[in-house]
Design a protein around this nucleic acid. Structure first.
Lengths: 268, 268
DNA sequence: GCAAATTTGTTCGTATGTATT
DNA sequence: CAATACATACGAACAAATTTG
């Protein structure tokens, strides 16, 4: 009994959830009922429920109650380049198609296009001076009517001058912008590098993903820098920021020779 | 001012931290001082501080105070296979050396070796029946005296019967077990697949990483399945679970042709 | 459409426990 | 041992969201 009371209560509720005594979607007793059941104060009950919410086990809805979270089947995103396994990448190209092939419903907003002066963190990645004009294309993506990812890609304005005019049109590029740039300008992406980091959602992200605004659920941020061939070494020409809520996404990376089945979400 | 008071206070404190008015490592005012400053109750102050802690901006230490978190320079782990960039992988081989090359101090415990009956989630990945005997090797890793990762790898006991006896010795395999298995048994890993997922830490993990035990900081779980050549398609022969605290780790994946500089931690 | 009832969210005040200096 | 600071717990009140009558 070294544990604080709220942890003991949370543990007991967790056991009921994991053992299946209460099913996903079910409402658990209200705070007042739990207060009576455990002879604790309402605040202590709330601490216990908060602890469960931070593990993603329950969801509280003002005016309604607290519910056991549906096990949203996580969506698997393939980050490595070989696309033989039938998994989608994060790029526009086949994303729509790939999601449908996995019997889930994709939806993407019309891109929001803006022109900006490059801030430091983007300038650095594109190896251009801070303040250089860049094109930003933003898109919201949904799967099964659930907000799934926020993506924005930065291109140097130079590409537009070179003839890639569709970059500045607020319209989807069905074949994917990477393919478009190759066909239009002969600009081939010879490789890309992803950086993955996990952080608390920003306020706008929390709103879009309908995450609790207290940072209980993190987001996974994937920063992908795309490279074209250069004189000595590869030269960056685009950087894509994709933000995924951590509670409904998993990622897969293949290296070398692996089976080409469609892997199931992991547990570990 | 539609925001609740604790959010307003948190925002104000956040601005002071981000603007550099208070430096990393500095102690912020105590809860009682903040209570007076903002004419709020101590509970409200605590809600605000909790909000900051969930974003990793501050750290509370009982008996001492609340401190602005040092920006622990995140450690970058390379998940893709090509190792030209000088980044370490997650495997034992060059990990020690690689960390040192980046002027940071590695430390790993002597492996803890146990024999188990394979639980479902491991059996599934190794494609063996549940209950098959497996060898588990566990190791704790530190960087700069900070707990950095928990790793455990499962091998079918069969490998031991085939002659890989060092798998059952509680001693480091300096060249890495993957290399050892290749040299000892001619068992070559032709590829591997990683699954990445983010979740709240388990209790033992929170203890080891010194994370707040209320799930504010997530862990990144990387499940790596290693494959050897098979008759038709690759066959799994080991599965490695590595758990990283999300607040001090980032990951890099290279695909195709990319520069071989050592990338800096990202922000996005 | 509105009012009442229900349920979670926020805030207060207070007391006691536990870790650190 | 004492002082300090965060952690846990209680009780109470009102606000905001939602459902129900």
């Amino acid at each position: 009994m070294a544990d604080p009371m709220y942890r003991t209560i949370a543990q007991e509720l967790q056991d009921e959830i994991l053992s299946g005594t209460v099913q996903p979607g079910d409402q658990i007793p209200t705070e007042l009922e739990l207060r009576d059941k455990y002879s604790a104060s309402r605040n202590t009950i709330r601490d216990a429920v908060k602890w469960l919410a931070s593990r993603g086990l329950v969801e509280t809805k003002p005016g309604q109650g607290t519910f056991v979270k549906q096990n949203v089947k996580p969506f698997l995103t393939l980050l490595s380049r070989d696309l033989e396994s039938g998994l989608s990448g994060i790029e526009g190209q086949g994303w729509f198609q790939d999601v449908k092939e996995r019997d889930r419903i994709p939806f993407a907003t019309v891109p929001l296009v803006e022109v900006q002066a490059a801030p430091r963190h983007i300038a650095q990645r594109l190896r251009i001076p801070v303040g250089t004009q860049i094109i930003i294309r933003r898109q919201e993506r949904h799967i099964d009517r659930t907000p799934f990812a926020l993506q924005s890609t930065a291109y140097p304005m130079e590409l537009h001058h070179m003839g890639a005019t569709r970059l500045l049109v607020a319209e989807d590029v069905p074949e994917g912008t990477v393919t478009y740039l190759e066909e239009r300008l002969g600009l081939r992406e010879i490789g890309h590098r992803d950086r993955i980091l996990v952080r608390a959602p920003r306020e706008d992200e929390a709103r879009f993903f309908k995450l609790p605004d207290d940072g209980r659920v993190s987001v996974v941020s994937v920063v992908r820098t795309g490279y074209r061939a250069g004189d000595n070494e590869p030269v960056p020409f685009r950087v894509t920021f994709t933000v995924f809520p951590a509670d409904r996404n998993q990622f897969v990376i293949n290296s070398g020779n692996v089976p080409n089945d469609l892997p199931e979400p992991a547990e570990g």
